[in-house]
């Protein structure tokens, strides 16, 4: 299997509304891919389908050749949009939890980042600020040596310093054989770290192209191209 993530005519409907319309997408290992689109374009739906939080209405989604399951969850590291860590847990307990359930959890890497962030091991998540909770959740997600990282809006609504911290944490920790899928509507903030861009609009893929190719052939940034594609 060469593709770490593959969607074949993947469709998801909620009631009568189609969130994803028969999309085909293949992602190779070793890439950082931007899943770009305005709010409500189906980014979160695609990510939830990939980690088994939703089931497809039609078509299929495959992680390393398999439909999402307990086996694929072991190689996928998912960062949800919201804080999913139980608030009563301490930093220490949250790391224990990840260590218990994920064989690929790099405890030393997590401890290193936690201490550099100045977090106390005995501090409960409840007492942390929203920004700190998000950083801790990102640290835990990126401390796994996963094959596929699914990051849902990791930089939504953060200040530039935090954005840099988040992007650096991602770049420092992902392994070169793994693929990182970053969903966002803030293209200019992430475009320098991307290999590929996937434009999603109303549940369909408008474009899937290498970022260098976009700049070479169109002579404009991904952000500019995005504004053109979605301007109407």
């Amino acid at each position: 299997m060469s593709n770490i993530l593959e969607c074949k005519a993947l469709t998801k409907r909620y009631g009568g509304k189609e969130a994803l319309s028969a999309i085909d997408l293949s992602l190779e290992p070793g890439r950082i891919v931007g899943l770009l689109g305005p709010n409500g374009s189906g980014k979160t739906t695609l990510i939830k389908l990939a980690c088994g939080l939703l089931t497809p209405t039609a078509g299929g989604i495959y992680i390393n050749g398999e439909a999402p399951s307990k086996a694929t969850n072991a190689i996928v590291s998912y960062l949800p949009e919201r804080i999913a860590l139980p608030l009563w847990m301490t930093t220490q307990q949250a790391m224990d939890f990840y260590g218990d359930f994920y064989a690929d959890f790099r405890r030393d890497a997590a401890e290193d980042m936690v201490s550099r962030l100045g977090l106390e091991l005995r501090q409960t998540i409840k007492t942390m600020s929203k920004g700190t909770r998000e950083k801790l959740q990102l640290i835990l997600t990126m401390s796994r040596a996963a094959r596929l990282y699914l990051l849902d809006e990791p930089i939504g609504g953060v200040d530039p310093a935090t954005r840099d911290y988040i992007l650096k944490t991602i770049l420092t920790n992902y392994s070169e054989e793994s693929t990182v899928l970053i969903s966002t509507h803030l293209i200019s903030d992430v475009e320098h770290v991307l290999d590929e861009a996937v434009f999603l609009r109303e549940g369909s893929i408008m474009l899937h192209e290498s970022v260098d190719t976009i700049r070479e052939e169109k002579g404009k940034s991904v952000d500019e191209l995005f504004r053109e594609v979605f301007a109407c």
Binding site: G30, R31, I32, D164, L167, K168, L171, T172, E176, H192, V193, L194, D195, V211, D212
Partner: peptide, 14 residues
């Protein structure tokens, strides 16, 4: 490569 990438805030493949 990784060090330069993190320093410049760009993709390691780049």
């Amino acid at each position: 490569v990784r060090e330069l990438a993190v320093d410049a805030g760009v993709n390691p493949n780049t």
